[in-house]
Design a protein around this nucleic acid. Structure first.
Lengths: 186, 186
DNA sequence: CGTGCGATCTTGTCGTTGGCAAGATTGCGC
DNA sequence: GCGCAATCTTGCCAACGACAAGATCGCACG
């Protein structure tokens, strides 16, 4: 499938992004190496530079892809706040490599237009989930509630990925997240 | 103060840890370089290896220091859950370099005995804060509440550090955190 | 049908880093 | 005052990111 047909790869950009996801999930974010990606794709060590400029450029593309995926999955989860929260945690666990780069803006170009657009779509999807809360007070209250919901989902996901949670939480992130999020979402 | 008096530095381990905190706050976690730390401390490029073995060893020491600091500050915050939550966020913001390494165990030796002990002290301090919640149900409920409280504080801190929060949240992390945490802690 | 030009990829190189090995210097205990 | 272990140095190697210059390809256009 990833046959190198002659001089030109044909789909190198996509191949490098896929290889980057594999590499990050295998060896962690810090071990990401452009030369390793090039080897995985069967091209020379300088080929990635043409598509992404540098390492930050590659991570910018990964983050953009991640925000779009997140927006998509949040939208699919529907308007229920609890479901959106579970979907957020699910996304983090199933797309670990994406998630881990998305919230580390010092590693990529946070001013990239495409990235900003994708991040905006993800934020809009987030707010759509919060909109189902009973409008108990002022807009400022709603903002605060949205922030609380985002924080608890993001915190649980981050702690889960870091392996920081005690064993008794179990090994099913969705289930554990649902129990925790219910504390806030009802 | 950091004069190099002759061949032996005298307090190199401490100097390297302090330099590491500065370096991380200046240039980020990924840019941490043992050789740079050695330059800052005025020693040769191989000197750090003697005290920490390798980069992971240095980060293990940083994380251990961080967990001890966190335990200390959480204990000082008293038994009030809201106060403990605000103290958690405060710690993350004021000790950013520590916080950012503590929850990235793939960067250090998570099986180090001293680290495990310090992390245990921090966890105990966390649970002490949660103990003030009305014991509304089973022990499992208390576990879930503790996890929810930890998640929301950790999530808010992480999002704040990542610069992911919208501008309207303001520039005072303690105040913003208090408003958000109140949503859960009362 | 061919041809030129831009996109894509390669080879070669440089400075920096982490880690290891071997040796120099120091201070402390005996 | 002497030896020994801890501390620090110099020297080295492989890997990496980034850049420059050149090779190859394919597509648009004549």
């Amino acid at each position: 499938m990833t046959e190198t047909r002659g001089y030109h790869h044909g789909d190198l950009r996509r191949a490098l992004l896929a290889a980057a996801l594999d590499a990050i999930e295998e060896d962690g974010q810090a071990a990401l190496s452009l030369r390793d990606l090039a080897r995985r794709a069967g091209v020379s060590h300088a080929a990635p530079a043409h598509h992404f400029g540098d390492k930050a450029g590659l991570r910018t593309a990964l983050a953009t892809q991640g925000f779009d995926l997140l927006a998509q999955e949040l939208t699919a989860a529907g308007d229920d706040l609890l479901a959106a929260g579970v979907a957020y945690v699910d996304f983090a666990v199933r797309h670990r490599a994406h998630f881990e780069v998305m919230f580390r803006p010092e590693l990529y170009r946070a001013d990239d237009p495409e990235l900003i657009a994708a991040r905006g779509r993800a934020r809009a999807a987030l707010r759509a989930g919060v909109a189902t809360l009973p409008t108990s007070g002022t807009p400022a209250d709603t903002d605060r509630d949205a922030l609380a919901a985002w924080s608890i989902a993001h915190g649980f996901a981050t702690l889960w990925l870091a392996g920081a949670l005690p064993d008794r939480v179990g090994d099913n992130p969705s289930e554990a997240a649902r129990a925790v999020l219910r504390r806030l979402a009802t």
